[in-house]
């Protein structure tokens, strides 16, 4: 049965690419692609082929486009009111809602985590359970290629998805509004898309983290969903309770009231989705000048003008920093745990 004839197997040593920079991607088909990019493209194709991804993308795409549709139907009504915000007509596509269907940004902040979780909850443990991990690790690749490739693949899928969604919205806006976005608006949309990607990356890293510490994919998925539900439903309730509990008996000064309000707000900001919505509101509504409570003294003399992009960015920089740093820290922890993990066969 086994016809031992391996003369066909060529004996020449394969030119290894060790001299090349480790991650350089070779796009030329005749040349050899670097193993890392082989892994990334395999992971991307795995993600795209999986049913859970297809279902989630359909869910997100449909809800988001529905919300954009309602925003478009709202436009004739809101167009009458001329205000400083109207300069940023286009951005309303992302934020406008008719009250029945949440706006585009709300959908992203709600469903984005689910997408991130679904892309990563079985990243490492499935490799272990299938017994592929030790086999792949014995190939001439560094161990961190696996986690890096998984993360990068999921991130590129998410990026592609969000860039596509952003372009769809902009395209729909162009068709139905007939007004091109200004450069400022375009940049705001770009930053919004980048922020959404970072936000999903945060949840992606959380689920990769769970996929390392939990051997069972189901446990890991459940842990991720538990965190998601905790932050999207229970966290605000808990903060409300805490706020009620520690609220001062009597408010003596405006400053005290403002300080308390801001303290509660800062507690809220431990929630990544709060950081995300803070940041999107500021980016997509340039007239927002503050995210906290303000004293009268701060408002006096202020005139209601939209903020320039740079200032909007600076204002949400803490939020962005929090999200980005959280994402990186989660990744670092996952990376550390993965690298320290004993490789065993199944």
């Amino acid at each position: 049965m086994m016809n031992v004839n391996i003369t066909a197997i060529s004996q020449k040593r394969f030119n290894n690419n060790a001299k090349k920079s480790p991650y350089s991607m070779s796009l030329n088909r005749n040349k050899v692609q670097h193993p890392f990019w082989v892994m990334v493209s395999k992971e991307i194709s795995d993600q795209v082929r999986s049913w859970r991804f297809i279902i989630l993308v359909a869910l997100i795409a449909l809800t988001c486009l529905a919300s954009v549709y309602t925003a478009l139907t709202q436009f004739p009504k809101s167009a009458g009111a001329k205000s400083s915000e109207d300069i940023f007509f286009f951005l309303k596509l992302f934020t406008l809602s008719d009250g029945t269907l949440p706006s585009f940004t709300v959908f992203i902040s709600f469903l984005g985590p689910l997408l991130g979780l679904s892309l990563g909850f079985d990243a490492i443990n499935s490799e272990m359970n299938r017994g592929t991990l030790s086999r792949i690790l014995s190939q001439p690749i560094y161990r961190d290629y696996i986690i890096n490739a998984k993360f990068l693949a999921a991130l590129s899928v998410v990026s592609f998805l969000f860039v596509t969604l952003g372009l769809l919205v902009v395209g729909a806006g162009l068709i139905f509004l007939g007004i091109p976005p200004t450069v400022d608006e375009l940049w705001r949309v770009i930053f919004f898309v980048l922020l959404s990607i970072v936000y999903v990356a945060f949840w992606l890293n959380l689920s990769i983290f769970f996929s390392i510490i939990f051997r069972q994919s189901a446990t890991s998925a459940l842990a991720g969903i538990a965190v998601w539900i905790f932050f999207s439903i229970f966290y605000n309730m808990i903060i409300q309770l805490i706020a009620k509990g520690i609220a001062p008996q009597q408010i003596y000064s405006e400053q005290q009231a403002v300080n308390f309000q801001n303290f509660v707000l800062n507690l809220m900001r431990l929630n990544p989705s709060q950081l995300f919505s803070d940041a999107t509101v500021t980016l997509l509504m340039p007239s927002v000048r503050s995210l906290g409570a303000l004293t009268m003294a701060q408002v006096e003399g202020a005139i209601p003008t939209p903020l320039p992009l740079g200032q909007s960015l600076l204002m949400v920089w803490p939020q962005v920093t929090g999200l980005v740093a959280g994402t990186i820290v989660l990744f670092a922890i996952s990376y550390y745990l993965f690298m320290r993990r004993e490789v065993r066969s199944r």
Binding site: Y142, P318, A325, I328, Y335, M339, R340
Partner: peptide, 25 residues
């Protein structure tokens, strides 16, 4: 903004350190 950037850079630096320490396995 710079402090935020420094925090992010520190986080990236941590990852780079991890890459250095464990990456060549």
């Amino acid at each position: 903004g710079l402090i935020g950037t420094v925090i992010i850079l520190a986080a990236i630096g941590g990852v780079v350190y991890l890459f250095r320490k464990y990456g060549r396995r």
